[in-house]
């Protein structure tokens, strides 16, 4: 099956990239000023001489550099990303605890940016010089120039303080009790502002992109053909044109995912969202290097996985790529 082959190829490529990040981490530990053992212990947190000695033993820091590299890779391969001495927990489990919250935030933001952005772009494409179209262009420029953390703070002041319709932060009301449904609603309520903050930049960007694509698509021959077939305008717009206009948006969204993840660090910090981003902030604050490097590695893994998923969804939308031709009967010329 071509799809399986493709996924395997992408996986192999992803594993290589993640491996490169592991090597980068190793290099950083050794390039950073000071004793690598101290780096691996982190600055704050009780690093006694015993702990340092233990770290030296675990990572073979007395051996030549290449042995150290192999030792380090071996540890990472077994899922040992080190110990956070500040939190007194293994780095991996700390990150995995926080990952779901981040994924919820990032995916909500991206999916709504893609859907809402494409919708707006489609509507704006009907009047290329209309107010909506110009509004989108201006919003894109504003979104591009606004620091995301500041936007989050402004939204907090506006919608959690001056007109308090949203909570001031965190993911759940403390001590909140209720059924699953109410709990989900509670989380959703907390999710609105951070997700919007994170989506804002991309929303306008995707609208602009889909509008441009839509204009191109609407001028295409197959849209004229669809009109000549007597199909109604809504069917032409939402069946024939939208799907074609969506392809570049999905591509760009996939390429930008690592940026979105970085944006989440800032947004989570502002909204006290208990995810990986907030953990990043804490690890920076505490100079918890193993945790920080672990987050770098896991972020790369997340981006790789998301890229593979994007690739697959791309193939679902566009039959011309990869899998589509497998079912082909071979109608050559």
């Amino acid at each position: 099956m071509a799809v399986v082959k493709l996924v395997l190829a992408r996986l192999a490529q992803g594993v290589l990239l993640v491996f490169a990040v592991v090597v980068l981490n190793f290099l950083l530990i050794h390039l950073a000023p000071g004793d690598p053992a101290q780096v691996l212990a982190g600055e704050f947190g009780g690093t006694t001489p015993q702990i340092l000695a233990q770290i030296r033993a675990t990572y073979g820091l007395n051996h030549p550099l290449w042995v150290q590299l192999l030792t380090y890779i071996g540890h990472v391969a077994r899922g040992n990303l080190g110990q956070s001495f500040y939190f007194n927990q293994p780095v991996l489990s700390l990150i995995l605890q926080r990952l779901p919250a981040t994924l919820l935030l990032v995916i909500t933001a991206q999916v709504s940016a893609i859907l809402a952005g494409t919708m707006l772009g489609v509507i704006a494409a009907r009047r290329p010089h209309g107010w909506l179209s110009q509004g989108i262009t201006v919003t894109a420029l504003i979104g591009y120039s606004t620091p995301v953390f500041w936007l989050g703070i402004m939204l907090l002041i506006a919608f959690a303080y001056l007109w308090p319709i949203f909570p001031i932060g965190s993911m759940e009301t403390i001590g909140f009790e209720g059924g699953i449904f109410h709990e989900a609603l509670n989380i959703l309520h907390h999710l609105v502002l951070p997700a919007f903050t994170l989506a804002f930049v991309y929303l306008a960007q995707y609208s602009r992109l889909s509008q441009a694509n839509m204009l191109e698509t609407l001028g295409s021959d197959y849209i004229r053909m669809a009109r000549a077939k007597g199909l109604p305008e809504w069917l032409i717009l939402y069946k024939h044109a939208l799907r074609n206009a969506l392809i570049p948006v999905v591509t760009i969204a996939g390429l930008q995912f690592s940026q979105v993840l970085a944006g989440a660090i800032l947004v989570e910090t502002v909204f006290d969202w208990p995810g990986m981003g907030q953990l990043t902030y804490e690890s920076i604050l505490r100079r918890d290097y193993p945790l920080l490097l672990g987050i770098l590695l896991i972020s790369a893994v997340v981006v790789v996985v998301v890229n593979i998923l994007t690739d697959l969804s791309y193939r679902l939308i566009d039959p011309r790529i990869g899998a589509g031709s497998v079912t082909g009967v071979g109608y050559g010329t």
């Binding site: 295409s220 197959y222 004229r224 053909m225 000549a228 199909l231 799907r243 566009d318 039959p319 011309r320």
Partner: peptide, 19 residues
């Protein structure tokens, strides 16, 4: 359109929706 009067165009490579 399409039921009483139909039309086909010059370039068949682009007249069909690829998706």
């Amino acid at each position: 359109r399409g039921r009483e009067i139909s039309m086909i165009f010059q370039d068949p490579m682009t007249a069909l929706n690829p998706l």
